[in-house]
Amino acid sequence: MAMQAQTRFTWGIEWGYSGVFMDSHTFNYFTTDGVRVHDTDTVLELHSCGVFLVNAGVNIADHLTAAVYTGYTSVYEARKVIPYSLRTTYFFKGCDNAGWKVFLDAGSAFPLKGSFNKKPLIIAKAGTGYRIPIYKNFCVDGFLALQFAADHPLLIFDKYTHTPVPEEVLRRSDRSTLGLVFGLSLTL
């Protein structure tokens, strides 16, 4: 029997697999010889990582929830981050009923303590999923999403010598990744 969602707070945990399959970069820097190098490339290579997030939110309407997410993930090799994002989810059959959902998620991600690159990056997700109510407000969701991340790495390597490029000669450093994330979540 369909249940009408009440405006209430929710919280939950989410975990899964993140497979970054596309990595694109544009670097512009000076070499020790004073030569300016413009390095741009897009690589299709799989980087696997786990995802673990916790969330707290509110059912703002019968079919709509908004929640803040944080946790742990990785956007490319050696770039483990703690994301902070806002996710808006639309449930086609209501927040507390079994059915499909779609969501949009966007925010920032901060590097772990001790990371060389202390700059935050932008992270966003768009995806779908299916909710199964288990008991009253306790639900299990499966989800699948496309994740985009945009970063400005401070540590890059010269494309010819493969040595680190000093930060003071780095004129432009853009790196973006695209990946697939899927997993399960438990929501109360």
Partner: peptide, 10 residues
């Protein structure tokens, strides 16, 4: 172990 009437268990 939590058993629920929906036949799910966590």
């Amino acid at each position: 172990r939590f058993d629920f009437p929906s036949s799910f268990a966590v």
